[in-house]
């Protein structure tokens, strides 16, 4: 076998830190995965809220109060930003899947566009939610 060191090969994510210098491409890729995992938890909180709304006014007031408390509210705003990031960067991934936008210049530009769009969409949703 060509690879004589099969048992001791480095396993993912070994490249972060010592080997790979952070760049917009790699950092945004990692954030996509992190937001995805966080949003899985947020989706469970959302189901809890819908179950509370299906149960009764007292339990709904309890769950809704938790999710809109200071800490809960900050968490929900974080979830909102994470959702729009994962949404925009997901579209960026779908464009790549279709075979477009792979040039280094295009990848950097679409990365910046994703970050700007995330901020704008988060702001628009917050304005719609509070006013």
């Amino acid at each position: 076998m060509a690879d004589v060191n099969r048992k001791n090969r480095p396993l993912s994510p070994f490249m972060i830190g010592p080997i790979y210098r952070p760049q917009i491409t790699s950092v945004m890729s990692i954030i996509h995965r992190v937001t995805g995992c966080g949003l899985a938890f947020g989706a469970m909180l959302g189901v809890w809220w819908f179950l509370a709304a299906a149960s009764g006014p007292e339990y709904f007031a309890f769950v809704d109060g938790l999710l809109t408390s200071w800490i809960g509210g900050l968490l929900m705003i974080g979830m909102l930003a994470a959702l729009w990031y994962h949404f925009c960067n997901g579209i960026r991934h779908l464009v790549w899947d279709a075979g477009y936008g792979f040039e280094l210049d295009a990848v950097n530009k679409s990365g910046v566009a994703t970050l700007v769009a995330t901020g704008v969409l988060t702001l628009i949703t917050l304005i719609a939610a509070f006013f």
């Binding site: 959302g46 809704d64 809109t68 949404f87 997901g90 949703t125 719609a128 939610a129």
Partner: peptide, 22 residues
């Protein structure tokens, strides 16, 4: 792909409902 339109349609009424009365 399915979640692109669904997210836009879901998030706004949900964000307006969160913290609303029963």
């Amino acid at each position: 792909i399915a979640l692109v339109p669904l997210t836009i349609l879901f998030v706004f009424p949900f964000a307006q409902s969160l913290g609303g009365d029963f």
